[in-house]
């Protein structure tokens, strides 16, 4: 336990130092407003990727409507701050609760079944949410919800991204996370070993949905304008790409996937005219190339941690196996 404490303190110190450094660079104008914008988007995308990875990588359920839960969180929290004048943090927490509740409503009937039914169901849910919002005049219907105040600053994003990472890490390294992984690999065996498979899957799904909704709240109070179309299937696919590219089942992989795929299209702007014109094309080709040469994602299902880095190379190799696919 003492060793854990010591390691924990070192980690906290590193995180605080990084934060102070970044804050200093922003204040001095070394990190410009444009870069700060990218950093905030990266933070939101990391939380989204982490939350979807918990569902796909750990409970082994394919979810294709993650943006819908983000929409729930975005709209609910925006209603609380703009219409009901609630402070920012309670509002996004309430948004997350609403997202978790929506996850519960879908997961409760569907996750009892063995198989990939969740994929179809979340796909449908995504469409339902979009169409529903388009028809609710109270939140601006198809015109979108405007007049949201700017609350999401670099400080909040930094704090919540770190907290989200810690939360996911602690869930997956607990008995609950092990149960989820066991169920994803062999549901019948897991049940025979005393794991309530339905409960394990539902728990992972609810936490994932609530976190996506939380990210949605951050997103709404950063862009100050949200509309139903920004939470459509394309957005869900984008989040899925972070997870698949980073490595399904790897928490650090999700972070890597979200960072690379958010920064890459922006970074390509900095090159010559040719690359600038075709940057989205280059971006897509890079994804295709990566998937051909590393179908298991950047990290496979390995984890990057201080421990693994310090250990000699070969233990790192033995420990991480390659995962073949989603199922």
């Amino acid at each position: 336990m003492q060793k854990n404490m010591k390691k924990g303190i070192i980690k906290i110190v590193i995180v605080v130092l990084v934060f102070i450094l970044a804050k200093f660079l922003i204040r001095e104008g070394i990190i410009g407003a444009y870069t700060e914008r990218i950093i905030i988007t990266v933070g939101i995308n990391i939380i989204l990727a982490l939350s979807l990875n918990l569902i796909i990588g750990y409970t082994g359920q394919l979810a294709l409507g993650h943006a819908a839960f983000m929409a729930v969180g975005a709209y609910v929290s925006a209603i609380f701050t703009t219409k009901l004048n609630l402070p920012f943090v309670p509002a996004i927490i309430l948004g997350a609760v609403a997202g978790g509740a929506a996850g519960f409503l879908i997961g409760w009937p569907i996750l009892r079944l063995k198989g990939d039914y969740l994929a179809i169901c979340t796909l449908g849910f995504g469409e339902i949410v979009k169409v529903l919002i388009q028809n609710i005049e109270y939140v601006g219907a198809a015109r979108g919800f405007s007049g949201i105040k700017l609350f999401t600053t670099f400080g909040w994003i930094f704090l919540f991204t770190v907290l989200a990472y810690i939360l996911i890490k602690r869930v997956v390294n607990s008995v609950y996370g092990r149960d989820m992984r066991a169920v994803s690999q062999d549901e019948i065996a897991a049940e025979a070993m005393g794991v309530n498979a339905f409960r394990a899957k539902l728990l992972g799904f609810i936490i994932g949905c609530a976190m996506a909704a939380f990210a949605g709240g951050l997103y709404a109070h950063y862009l100050m304008f949200i509309d139903p179309v920004s939470f459509d299937f394309n957005k869900s696919t984008e989040i899925l790409t972070f997870v698949v590219l980073g490595g399904i089942g790897s928490t650090s992989g999700s972070v890597a996937g979200a960072v690379i795929l958010t920064v890459l299209p922006e970074a390509l702007r900095g090159f010559g005219d040719f690359i600038k014109t075709y940057r989205m094309l280059i971006y897509s080709i890079m994804i295709v190339i990566l998937m051909i040469f590393r179908p298991q994602g950047i990290m496979g299902n390995r984890e990057l941690s201080l421990q693994n880095l310090m250990k000699k190379g070969n233990t790192f190799n033995i420990k991480g196996g390659e995962k073949d696919g989603i199922a």
């Binding site: 092990r178 992984r181 066991a182 690999q185 062999d186 019948i188 005393g194 196996g321």
Partner: peptide, 22 residues
């Protein structure tokens, strides 16, 4: 089980540890 049903992608110790949580 007749046809072995381990958690194939988990480590040997995690396979056993999952059962401990019962």
């Amino acid at each position: 089980f007749q046809n072995i049903r381990l958690y194939k992608e988990m480590s040997v110790s995690d396979n056993i540890k999952t059962s401990c949580s019962v």
